[in-house]
């Protein structure tokens, strides 16, 4: 049961991280407001199932859609203005905080006290199924025309624009996609912990998501998934306090930027074939070494 809980948490974080990877890793903009989209998803799903009695499998897409729509509120003005990436980041930071204040003051969200007694829908098979679906969609998104355009923008947005790519549209689309993923993550989180309050979705949560993507490798999908699993599991196993975890994440971010900016995976993807090739190459290198000596 305990291990199940950790696995569920790993996959929930991986879902949100994959979403953010599509945005940060593939368009080169950093968001510090993705906790807000998780919050929107969590609240949408919780209100839909608890207050209106809508079935979970209808409420979940609603949560994704709602988070996506909310992302347009911040995305359309800031992305249309083509802000510098640090300006965009601070705008999302402000947006995330504004969203939390809003949730604390709306009557339907029950304010700062939060919503308790949510049904447990996020059981392991359900979460696993949704995880697989999200990863499948992400993979298809990245290998579609839009994914290619996003990569072009990340590499050189001026050249991409000159090649006829609509910067605003591609960025907005990946923001929408990533917000929808964060919304799903938030909704699953709400029905896993079975209690939500605005305090759960602070900028610390946003930063952790960003850290996951950066550590996993900007430009990879499997990298952030691996990082999400590591980031949940290692502190669980070591049983360290929350604060020291954050201290370590902070140091890790700096270390990654200074020493290995491409993260765990870089632009590459994790695959069985890749591992086999890696070990085969390892073998050939050693053989060569043997013949020389």
């Amino acid at each position: 049961m305990y291990i199940q809980g950790i696995l569920i948490l790993c996959m929930i974080n991986a879902i949100s991280a994959v979403g953010l990877a599509v945005f940060t890793g593939f368009t080169g903009l950093m968001s510090l407001g993705h906790a807000a989209f998780m919050a929107v998803g969590a609240y949408t799903c919780a209100i839909a199932t608890k207050t209106f009695g809508i079935p979970f499998f209808i409420a979940l897409p609603m949560a994704a859609l709602m988070a996506g729509l909310v992302s347009l509120v911040i995305g359309i003005p800031t992305l249309r203005a083509k802000l510098r990436s640090d300006y965009f980041t601070i705008a999302t930071l402000g947006f995330g905080e504004a969203m939390r204040v809003l949730l604390e003051n709306l009557p339907i969200t029950n304010g700062a006290r939060g919503m308790a007694g949510l049904a447990r829908f996020s059981v392991l098979p359900t979460v696993f199924l949704i995880f697989v679906i999200v990863v499948f969609f992400t993979k298809n998104f990245i290998f579609s025309r839009y994914g290619r355009m996003a990569i072009a923008i990340r590499e050189d947005h001026i050249a991409a624009e000159m090649a006829g790519i609509n910067l605003f549209q591609v960025r907005l689309r990946s923001l929408f996609f990533s917000a929808a993923c964060a919304g799903i993550g938030g909704a699953l989180m709400a029905h896993h912990i079975r209690f939500i309050q605005p305090n759960m979705f602070t900028n610390v949560q946003s930063t952790l998501l960003t850290a996951t993507v950066v550590a996993g490798g900007m430009g990879s999908i499997t990298g952030p998934i691996i990082a999400a699993f590591i980031f949940v599991m290692v502190p669980e196993v070591l049983r360290v306090a929350e604060m020291w975890r954050l201290v370590a994440y902070g140091a890790l971010l700096v270390a990654i930027m200074v020493l290995r900016p491409q993260g765990i995976m870089g632009y590459r993807e994790f695959s069985i074939n890749g591992i086999i090739r890696y070990f085969r190459n390892l073998g050939t290198k050693q053989d060569k070494g043997g013949t020389v000596s």
Partner: peptide
């Protein structure tokens, strides 16, 4: 740079 700054700040 920004990620590094964020990291320092969290740390």
């Amino acid at each position: 740079f920004m990620i590094s700054a964020m990291g320092t700040s969290i740390f």
